[in-house]
Each structure stands twice: as C-alpha cells, then as structure tokens.
Design a protein around this nucleic acid. Structure first.
Lengths: 128, 128, 128, 128
DNA sequence: GTGGTCTAGACCACT
DNA sequence: GTGGTCTAGACCACA
C-alpha cells in the first residue's frame, strides 16, 4: 500500500494519515472502499495497532473516512468531508508561506506557476 | 511584533520561528536588521527566554539569521541562506499535498492558479 | 560509557557530543545501534536530561544519529551523514593550524607524519 | 594585518588569538618584533580595546608574546614558549579525532598524508 | 547589555 | 517507556 520512513521526524501516525489522505485525494482509494483493518495494516507496516487506530480516528475526525462498528473503516463520500472554513483559511495561509519560501529559494514566478499546474493536473476531482 | 496562539497545536517556539520567517520573507525585517533581544522578546511575548533562544537557533540553523555573541541576533543576507536541496523537495511535496486538498475542498483549477498568482505577487524577491 | 571533565573549558554538552562522535568514528558504536536513553545517560553521567537531549540533537543535526520519537536515538548509517563541504574546509584548516603548532613545539616532520600514519591506521573506515 | 569574521561563531578575541598565533607560527611575525598597540589594533579592526587586551593576555599566557609595561607587546623567542606537556597531548588527541573525521568523510589515506605534507611544508621551523 | 549553558522539575505526545 | 516542550531561575563569557 505504501511505505513508512521510520527515521523521519514526522510521527508515524501522522505519516499514515498523510499517505492515506493522499491516496484518497488521488482517488486511488474511492468512496465507500474499505480500508485495511487495523490489525491487518498494523501487520503489513509492522507498527503498533494503537498507532493505526489513532490514524484512523484522525482521518475520521476530518471526515475522510467513516467507521462502521464491527465491520471496518471506509472512505467517505466527498460531500461528507468537513469543509471547515477555518481550516481552509489555514491551508491557504500555509500555501502562501510556502510559495514565498519557494520564491526565496530562487524559483521564478513562471517556474512556480508551472509547478502548480502540474500539481493541479495530478488531482482528478473534476468529473462530478 | 506579532502574537502567539497558545491554543494552537504548533509549539510556541515553532510559531515564533514561522512568524519571524514570515517577517523576513515579506521583507518586513530586512537583512542585517537586529532582532529583538532574547530577553526583550521573551518579555513582550511573556514566554520563557529559553524558548525564544531555541527559536533563534532554529532560524540560525536554516540560515535566516546570524548571531553575534554578546551583541545580538541579525537578519541574514539572502546569499547566506541555506538552500538545502532536500528541503526544497520537501517544500514542493507539501505544497502539492495542500493543493490537492484545496481541490478536494472544491476549489476549481482557475481559482487555485489565481490564488497562487496573488501569493507570488505579494512576494517581493525580484529586485536583485 | 565515558567520563566527563567538569573542570574542562568545553561545555558539558559539547564534551558529550565529541565523545559520542568518537565512539561512532571508532566504530565502538555501530550503525543502527541504540544509544542510551536520554534519562538513562543523564543518570549515569549525573547530568540534567536537557543537557543530554541537546547533545543528541546536535549529533542528529550533523547526521551522526537519528531519532525515532518514543523509541530512542540510533547511530546513523554512514551514507546518511552530512558531508557538508564547508565543514570539511573548516576541518582541514583546524588540522593545518594544529600541525603548525606541533612543529612549533619541536616535532620534526617525520615524527609528525609518523604520528599521522598511526592515526590513520586506527581508523577503520576502508571496508566498504 | 588580517580580517575578522564578525558573523562567525568563534568569539572575536579567539579569532584574534588564532590569527596572531598563525602569523607567529608562519614567521610572518618574527621574535622580538613589536605587535601593534592595543589602541592601534582596536582601531584598525574596529573592535573594543578590552577585546584586544584579552587576546594579548591569552597569547602571553601561552608564551607566544611577552609584554613590557609601557612599551608594548612583543613576539617571544621560541624557547620561551610554554611547551606544556599536557597541552601537547591534548593537541595530538584533537588531531587524531580530526583525522578520523576526515577519513569518515571519505578521504583516502594517501590524500590525507598528502594534505599533511603540504601543511608541514607551510611551516618553516627547521632553520635553527 | 548580549547570547549561551545548565539545573530541576512539570507536562505532553508517541510507541 | 521514549523523546520533546516549556518554565523559572542561576550563572558564565563576550563586547
């Protein structure tokens, strides 16, 4: 499914959250698809089950997945995701800072916009 | 100078790093300008001096400021900043994820590129 | 593991960094080996945990060790170490000065080269 | 005479000590030659006179210079220098560590000995 | 005055 | 258990 970098400074549960988010955002995982069970994923990643659990809780909190007691964890429909307005602003702000840092490191405006276009194309959320 | 959000999940020293970085990137703080002394800033933010110190050293590590013992901490010249290649990749990757998340939250491609263009214009790093 | 010299002009955390570096360089500590925990080492050296922590972070910054939150601090693989070019120059320069000082104290050229050869042989970094 | 790097982490007085030591070791400054006066040097380097004074004291302590009250500071004869045995050992130990670090950074044995030979040739202490 | 080191001890997050 | 953050406050070296 994906790989962890144990030596990274990012905590493991956070890496898992990010990776799964990414898989959902790139629609590798599609709505209502079942995620691997906690136990299963904990084995394949050789990670403590509690860590997986925490990741799933985090994803659920943000509305990326929903849990059905006793049967598992599933990718949520888009409409069910939390579009917290405050979170959107935070996101924009972070992107702004990162863009500034890119400029700072010497990237030219057209390089940046080129980069962004690539990124946008990788997202595939325009067929509904 | 700026304010902290004690409720934030970000640690205090990290907030300080980010805020000062932002001030440098937006050229509110200009090269060779002196930062507030550790003790001074610690008073205005009502934060322990050690916490401020930690922030300053972090900024120094990334080449944003330089320190002259006994005389203070100063904004570094652009050319002295660390343009760590690995850091650049990390930055791009983070932007990519954030862009995807923006799309996910419903922003259309042209809205995003418009946003980015605004951000780029706010950066003022093209006069040298 | 080793001993500190409290009377030294070198700061404690710096002594710890140097000693551990030495242990790694002489391969007494081998890649992926676990270092003593912060608290543990702080007890055996009767030094404050924060001081140990600082040493570990310094070593991490230079790529000698890596840290896995919640599980410990480990000796890094050779390839992961930072071979900062600037650091290399600094190192050479320091050796040059020290060599001159040796001469000054009366050592003859062949004595010095002899010494150096011994030192080189003690290093064991040629088996990969 | 020489230049300081104010942005360096080395303290100013220490930089001065090292530079003057270097000038003496390379015999740019010869025995019994007069060093610039404290005031004079403090002006040319735009540094606080106390800082210069401290440097001179340090050099005197190590036997590199001697002071004649009211008339100035002079380069000492070789024989008057402190050849503190303990200091010699410390010096060797530091060189050993630095050599190991050089190896560690990938320099081959012959590269290192070549380097050392260059360094030795720069010293010119064999004509007496 | 400046930054930097160190201690003691509390509290948090991750595994 | 692990590392990491933060505080309060002492003390040092440098300019």
């Amino acid at each position: 499914m994906f790989q962890l970098d144990l030596k990274s400074r990012k905590s493991i549960y956070e890496q898992i959250v990010d990776k799964i988010k990414e898989l959902i955002l790139t629609e590798v995982l599609t709505p209502n698809e079942k995620l691997p069970s906690v136990r299963e994923l904990s084995k394949t990643l050789t990670v403590n089950p509690n860590t997986i659990l925490k990741s799933y809780r985090e994803l659920e909190k943000d509305g990326y997945v929903y849990t059905i007691g006793g049967s598992g964890c599933f990718v949520a429909e888009k409409k069910d995701r939390n579009t917290d307005k405050w979170k959107l602003e935070e996101l924009k702000h972070r992107i702004q800072n990162d863009i500034m840092e890119l400029q700072y490191l010497g990237l030219q405006p057209d390089e940046i916009t080129g980069l962004i276009k690539q990124f946008i194309e990788k997202g595939v959320f325009y067929h509904d």
